[in-house]
Simulated assay, not measured.
Amino acid sequence: MYHPYARGKQNELLALRESANILADASFVPIIEPVRSLLTGLERALKEITDAGGRAIVIVNPRHGELQADGSAIGDLLDQHYQSNDAISAGILLHSNLSTTAAVALIDAHADHYPVVIHAGFTEARALAEALGDRAQSFTHVFVEDQASTLYRRHFDGATRILLHDGFEALNNADYGSVDPFSDLHVTFPEFGVQGYGDFLTVGDRYREGGGPAYAVAIHLTYIDPDNDDEMLVQHFVSDTNGTPSDTAGKFREALDKLIAEVDSGHSKILGTSGVDEFRRLHASGHYPGLGFVKKLSMRHHIETLANYHAP
């Protein structure tokens, strides 16, 4: 049903590892695009997920990061640990620079790893559907919403189809307002003729290798609004002392003070997840864990919020 798309940076992989039981219990299937040549973190994340009884999709031809020129090491990892194991599928990323011939070759090369086809800017939908023939319906097809139109998606009718929406607008931290819309796909995805949905968590699809100095610190927490047809929104908690890049820990404290005030207000719609509990512990201790850790907690909270929404 739900497919969180994570790039294989340390804290994104940690968020998946720490959410492994929640992912498995909810039948959520993360999509992981490895971006680091060292695959130790990916291996650990996959082990945690499969040990919990979950599933994952690993992109074998990343578009970003250190493996974009040669993803063979990812295929080797799948061969060594997940040969003919349907818990881990090979994700075939179809982007604008890929030809139909190359796309089919990638799918065939990973036939033993239950390939999932991810459409992200590919332009030859008709040719691919014709080249695959009846096989096209045997694959799961994941469509990045703004890179695969409704007309494009029609070529794969009859297959299991997943729609990915980027609900997070990446801005300079100081430019965030209080609340922004995030997504309604968790409610509306069946109306698009698809069997599942996904997003890019509280990070967004835009890939950045590293950030500059933190003039402002922002913590992003999603929530579902039962008073607005269960739409998901994202609330931003932004520091106030944003004139210089100094004292990141102090800026974090300012943002965290706002977060705790909101969740303790008595009227907040933010779910009391394990991520929120960790923010409470950080607030009580006065500890600053680093911005990557903060991002990890935000992603964990997002996954847990959706798991709670879909719980029977």
Rank of each mutant, 00 (worst) to 15 (best):
D199Q: 03
G275T: 02
G75F: 13
L23D: 04
D205Q: 07
P181C: 06
H81F: 14
D76R: 04
H119Q: 06
G290E: 03
A111F: 14
I31L: 14
R161D: 04
V263E: 01
F192G: 04
R300T: 04
D180L: 14
V179M: 06
L23G: 03
L132H: 05
Y197R: 05
R208T: 05
S138H: 15
E12W: 03
M299Y: 07
G91T: 11
M299Q: 00
A218I: 00
D199K: 05
H287L: 11
T273N: 05
G266W: 07
P312Q: 01
H267C: 11
F168N: 04
I260G: 08
H310S: 06
P115I: 15
A103R: 08
L297Q: 03
V276Y: 06
H110A: 12
H236S: 05
L128T: 09
N97P: 00
A105L: 12
F143T: 02
G198L: 08
D277S: 15
S298L: 06
P181V: 12
V276K: 01
R7L: 12
G65T: 09
N172D: 03
K9G: 04
K258H: 10
A261W: 07
I224V: 15
L259E: 04
L46W: 14
A103V: 10
S285V: 14
L106G: 05
P62M: 10
S274Q: 09
H301S: 04
L282Y: 13
V203H: 03
G121H: 07
E48C: 14
P226Q: 09
G266P: 04
A120L: 01
Y114P: 03
S149M: 07
G210L: 14
A20T: 12
R44D: 15
A159C: 12
I88W: 13
M299T: 04
D70F: 05
E169V: 11
L201N: 02
P30Y: 12
L271W: 04
Y215D: 01
A111S: 15
A216H: 00
A214Y: 00
S298W: 02
H64R: 08
I49T: 10
Q83V: 13
R208M: 09
I59F: 06
A129M: 10
A136F: 07
A15M: 11
Q83P: 00
P181Q: 00
S138D: 14
D240Q: 12
V203E: 05
R206Q: 04
G286K: 01
N172V: 08
H165R: 07
F252G: 03
R126E: 11
S99N: 10
I270K: 02
H155Y: 15
P226K: 09
H302C: 10
V142C: 05
A103G: 08
I57D: 02
F279G: 08
L282T: 06
A15G: 06
I118R: 00
K296M: 14
S89E: 01
R300C: 11
D76P: 00
G53R: 13
A311W: 05
G41R: 14
